[in-house]
Write a protein that binds this DNA or RNA. Structure first.
Length: 549
RNA sequence: GGUCUGUUGGUGAAGCGGUUAACACGGUACCCUCUCAAGGUAUUAUACACGGGUUCAAAUCCCGUACAGACUACCA
């Protein structure tokens, strides 16, 4: 019995060889500096912030060099698969205009010459390499049961030894070929393990694009390569896929750093060229008890992309935020080039923070606020309407009914060098403009300011509307009249003067303006009162005043 | 237990052997002002985890400690 016999028994149907695969998936015909990256998620539900960040960067560096960004689906774990997993991923990506050049582009559509791009469809390919490794004594079948492995583990824990299947603990590595052959013939369950030649006392130096040189002990653990169901584990699939798909740069989270020695070892054993690696810091959050921890898909709603959709944060703002945490000099770049797009910014690995970034919702919302402030009123209208259609139908109907009027509302103090920044997200807009719509102007709760005497309020309002109000007035005329109104009631029309001699007056012009403001909006806080009067027009102003007279 | 990574003001974060240790968000005050927002000005924050070394010089290099995180699965 030879290794070849054993390999044939284990893989009777393999037709390709490692050489024919090299021909099928040849080196990409790209210039030297062009980068091939990928995003390789598992279809386990929505995309997590941290993953989105790495997808975002992967696409960015591919685009920066006119290279290729592709999408591969890593679905080797059946237990964690969810329904429509691929569609969900595609949707989230599309929302952020992260469109793959190659790979999986629809639930059941793949493009490109390096496929299939779904791991569950690549079994024949993995088998070729597994067979090769068996033949060449680089891997072996292991028949250990769960209990046996458990025993090894507890044994090691007791002796305070390193945990894992290695050297003297790796009993199956010494099984004879005949024995293994016989047991497989007998239909015994087995996995295929790496036959590691690594020495834990020796060091290897690996290079990471964001962390620089890292020194590791060599890997001496006989990791599982192929599970008992015949499906490879991540490590094996990663090495084969990224080689065959000719990925040049691997971007992934820091959680993979520890397995890098294994991956490098695998690349070398298979004579693959080693790609460049960049391990990104994890996206963290502060826990209730004040400690930092990885942003969790399960526990933290803000880790879901949909959270921002629901909140009405513009996607562009999320992208700007991601870029600022991806490259620390992006903010400075934006400062210097306020109108530049993200595409014009060059990503630089040297500017990636190695420590985990704390996810900062305030910062994101601030970016959102700034972004919205730079939009045109029509754009604000469109975005808000889209948001409302999904989350506030009633408001959506009102927006549609009063389209032009709404745009004028959104336009208040917008067309100026420094526009107002009071809309944080699209979901907060309604609470800031509701009073401009008569439909919402019911069940009112007036919050008066300094002047709260009903009689005085009535007198001020009726005097204003009868004696001073004129729809045609320009802003200066309007304000002059407000001043006159103030004087008439014994309030100072000049605030500076009032501040000098407060005792000579009942109050100042702002108190009078506030009465009008509250009568129209119920609140002392609003945008430019002149614009509000302009938009409401005479009849509606009178109606609102009459409610109080 | 083992391996690796990280630690700069309230937060994010520059800095890579010589700096008054940037900048942004936030906080505070004042100015502007019909309110608010914005804007302007100023201000704030005891900021380089700790202890050793190397050096004329260390936030920056080395070692140790502490803390945090990741990995240590037939999950990715």
């Amino acid at each position: 019995m030879t290794r070849k016999d054993l390999a044939n028994l284990m893989f009777p149907n393999v037709v390709d060889t490692i050489y024919t695969l090299e021909e099928k998936y040849p080196k990409r015909n790209l210039e030297e500096n062009k980068v091939v990256t990928r995003y390789a998620p598992s279809p386990t539900g929505f995309i997590h912030m941290g993953n989105l960040l790495s997808a975002f960067i992967a696409r960015k560096i591919a685009k920066d060099t006119n290279g290729i960004f592709y999408l591969r689906i890593e679905d080797t774990d059946n237990k964690r698969k969810v329904d429509n997993g691929i569609t969900k991923i595609l949707q989230d990506l599309a929302n952020f205009s992260i469109i793959p050049d190659e790979g999986v582009v629809e639930e059941d559509k793949q493009i490109g010459n390096y496929g299939p791009y779904i791991q569950s469809q690549r079994k024949q390919i993995y088998d070729v390499y597994a067979k090769y490794m068996i033949e060449n004594d680089l891997a072996y079948p292991c028949f250990c049961t769960e209990e046996q492995l458990e025993n090894i583990r507890t044994n090691q824990e007791q002796k305070k030894e390193r945990i894992g299947y290695y050297s003297k603990y790796a009993t199956c590595r010494n099984l004879s070929i005949d024995e293994a052959y016989k047991r497989i013939k007998n239909n015994e369950k087995y996995v295929i393990r790496l036959k590691s030649k690594g020495d834990f006392d020796k060091r290897i130096i690996v290079n990471d694009l964001v962390r620089g040189k890292i020194i590791f002990p060599e890997n001496d653990i006989d990791h599982v390569l192929i599970k008992s169901d015949g499906i490879p584990v991540y490590h094996f699939a990663h090495v084969i896929d990224d080689h065959l798909m000719r990925t040049t740069h691997i971007l992934r989270g820091e959680e993979w750093l520890s397995s890098l020695p294994l991956h490098i070892q695998l690349f070398s054993m298979l004579n693959f060229e080693i790609p460049k690696y960049a391990h990104l810091g994890l996206v963290m959050k502060i826990d209730e008890n004040g400690t930092r921890r990885k942003l969790s898909k399960r526990k933290d709603p803000e880790s879901a992309i949909s959270f921002y959709h629901e909140k009405g944060v513009p996607i562009e703002a999320v992208k700007l935020y991601l870029m600022t945490i991806a490259n620390s000099n992006f903010e400075a770049f934006l400062d210097a080039n306020p109108n530049a797009s993200i595409d014009e910014f060059k990503f630089d690995f040297k500017k990636v923070s190695a420590s985990g970034t704390l996810f900062d919702l305030d910062k994101l919302l601030n970016i959102s606020r700034n972004y919205i402030s730079r939009l045109k009123a029509e754009e604000v209208y469109d975005y808000t309407l889209n948001w409302a259609k999904e989350y506030d139908i009633e408001f959506a109907k009102i927006l549609e009914k009063y389209k032009n009027y709404s745009i004028e509302i959104f336009n208040i103090e917008r067309n100026q060098k420094k526009p107002r920044k009071d809309y944080e997200t699209f979901s907060t807009i309604k609470s800031q403009v509701w009073y401009m719509y008569d439909e919402y102007f019911t069940n009112l709760d007036y919050k008066w300011g300094k002047i709260n005497d009903k009689k005085e309020i009535s007198e001020i309002l009726s005097t204003y509307i009868n004696k001073y109000y004129n729809e045609e007035d320009d802003k200066d005329t309007w304000f002059d009249k407000i001043k006159q109104l103030a004087e008439e009631f014994g309030y100072c029309s000049n605030i500076k003067e009032y501040k000098l001699n407060p005792d000579n007056y009942k109050g100042n012009v702002s108190d009078i303006a506030t009465v009008i403001r509250v009568a129209l909006t119920t609140t002392t806080i609003s945008p430019d009162l002149y614009m509000i009067l302009k938009l409401l027009k005479e009849n509606r102003i009178k109606n609102r005043f009459n409610k109080l007279l």
